Amino acid sequence: MTIEKTTISDVAKYAKVSKSTVSQFLNERYEYMREETRERIEQAIEELNYQPNNVARSLKLKSTATIGVIVANILHSFSTQVIRAIEDTLNENDFSTIICNADDNPKKEKNYIETLLARQVDGLIVFPTSGNRELYKRLVDSNFPIVFVDRYVNGLNSDAVMLDNEKAIHMAIEHLLTNGYEDIAVLTTSIDTAVVPRVERVQGYKSAMKRFDLPIREAYIKSRDLPVLKKGIAELFKLEKPPQAIVSGNDLTLMEFLKYASEHDLKIGSDVGLVTIDEVNFMEIHNPPITTIAQPTFEMGEKAVELLLDKFDDSNQSEGAQIYRFDPSIIVRKSAEKAGVRI
């Protein structure tokens, strides 16, 4: 008869805390831990007869205590906010952070991966491009700790933290419909490289239109590289039936649309409705204030760190990759209101 060994996951579940909190307790990092939490963990360890793997943990602690973070495009407000959460959470756990910006360039991303590995970082948190699958596969197959954020790499046994992109688009479309808009277009950056959130947001747009019995007009879907996106927006408003409203796929496409609207005296909220994914600090002071589908950036960054730290516990054997989807929320302002129509 085999007796199953109590794991750190069991302790966390019993004490009703995260595994990273138990890890902090075991490493005597109590600075941000309430006395009640410490007592619950102590009780759980005693009652479950948990025996930490001190040798494995000491080997981990003997490491560089540094995590590499590679972001596909640091210009995204979402990326900056998540990185801040990652850095804060790692700092609380006594890890330093090296942050690298790949500029959506697989070659640059590959160079950063190799540089970080040469510096013997203990793990990677990556917003991946779509061009280094084999390199990531070698890392995952060798059990190197790695967690993906915002995107995942198909076919790899590695965890990922993402937004529920389809739900986000459905939320935006439903809000516009409630306010009297039906001819709705969507803007994203190019999907030619199959970047997961962009593809999922276009798919979400189509499924939302189908859900609400609205026609799917391919001319209303503009997925272009940023330098030529404005041309795509111009094509929308030259159509025989231009859209009444726009869903912007992220903060960068939003900026291109706002530039176009300003240059063509297109009044948001009266000439055209607007909802965007990603909360940016100027949304509230824009005229009119812009309705946003917000991502829980801090929670996503915190989760990415928790998943990575869990991989340092040899007793935590993963049964396969998991994609952790976070729910979006809507921040209603005035950019999607139509005269005479209110929620």
Rank of each mutant, 00 (worst) to 15 (best):
H264G: 03
L229W: 10
N165I: 00
S58P: 00
E46N: 13
Q120F: 12
Y260M: 11
D278E: 12
I67C: 04
G204D: 04
N287A: 12
N143Y: 13
D164I: 02
E39G: 03
L254R: 08
Q244N: 07
S20D: 06
K267Q: 14
I99T: 13
T292L: 08
E36V: 10
F282E: 07
F78A: 04
K338H: 09
K167I: 01
Y260C: 08
T66R: 08
Q120D: 14
I293N: 06
V17K: 13
R198V: 00
E302R: 15
E92T: 05
A65C: 09
T188C: 07
S270Q: 13
G180V: 05
N179D: 08
N27L: 03
L214N: 02
A336H: 09
M33L: 15
L274K: 12
R201I: 01
E87K: 06
L139C: 11
N49V: 04
D159S: 09
E46V: 02
R342T: 09
S23I: 06
R119I: 02
N143H: 15
A219G: 03
D104K: 07
N54V: 07
V82A: 02
E35T: 11
Y30K: 11
E306K: 02
Q43G: 00
A336Q: 06
F25K: 00
V202D: 10
I216C: 08
R201T: 01
I343A: 07
D94L: 13
V199N: 02
F127H: 14
N105M: 12
S58Q: 15
S142F: 04
E47I: 03
E36K: 15
T89A: 10
K60R: 14
P296V: 00
F148Y: 09
M255Q: 11
R211I: 00
A102W: 03
V305Y: 00
L116N: 10
L61V: 05
L61C: 02
N157H: 06
Q24D: 12
